[in-house]
């Protein structure tokens, strides 16, 4: 796959298209370099991280979000871009064991991190139990939010196992339960415009053994 250079054209296009802003930002890069002493700073920076168990190296414009690095540079297009502002959860991936919105994170913040995307959870012939449960319970219609829902759902069950409380947890000292109310609250950062919510909760309940 042509991984390098996939976005280079469009980046150059953006810079050429916005002459004023490109000129202004180049000046400020020089300024930042002059003033930040020993630490050399570049507009493009190298990044090494692990994605779905594989070591990856990229050379990225600092502006590249983790989401765009996955989709546009590594062609892992399972992770979706909905709002690009932390409001929908379509871009949810698991980083170092925790779910985050990959749209609100710069790729360069993830040097050395371990990222798991929907592609890393399972494959078409070896589905993750949560993927299988979504199929069985009709946990989707159009499927756009689904990779984010599944990554989130896997992480939610883990958060419950670890005893992380939620807004609806009554007893902060007791064991956390994978109840329907708990799962709905914990999944509120994943919006589904097809409204598959109740089936998603059933898929999660099956995996949780509840």
């Amino acid at each position: 796959m042509a991984q390098d250079g996939f976005l280079k054209v469009s980046r150059r296009g953006v810079l050429a298209g916005g002459v004023a802003s490109a000129a202004a930002s180049r000046a400020s890069i020089a300024f930042a370099q002059e003033n930040s002493g020993a630490s050399a700073v570049e507009a493009t920076v190298p990044l090494k991280f692990t994605v779905n168990g594989e070591d990856r190296q990229l050379d990225l414009d600092t502006r590249t979000t983790l989401l765009d690095a996955l989709r546009e540079h590594l062609q892992l297009t399972g992770t979706k871009k909905g709002c690009d502002h932390g409001q929908c959860g379509a871009c949810t991936v698991i980083v170092n064991g925790e779910r985050i919105n990959s749209c609100l994170s710069l790729a360069v913040q993830h040097e050395g991190d371990e990222v798991t995307t929907i592609e890393g959870l399972g494959s078409a012939d070896r589905l993750h139990p949560m993927q299988a449960a979504f199929v069985k319970h009709d946990g989707y219609q159009c499927g756009y939010c689904t990779p984010g829902q599944i990554c989130s759902a896997v992480a939610v069950l883990d958060e419950i196992r670890k005893g992380i409380p939620s807004h609806v947890t009554e007893d902060l000292d007791g064991a956390m339960q994978p109840s329907n109310v708990e799962m709905r609250e914990r999944m509120s950062g994943n919006i589904c415009r097809c409204g598959a919510y109740s089936n998603i909760a059933e898929a999660m309940a099956e995996v949780a053994g509840a």
Partner: peptide, 12 residues
């Protein structure tokens, strides 16, 4: 804290 944002956001 648990009343704010979403699980994904609170992790970051």
């Amino acid at each position: 804290i648990q009343a704010g944002a979403s699980g994904q956001l609170r992790n970051k």
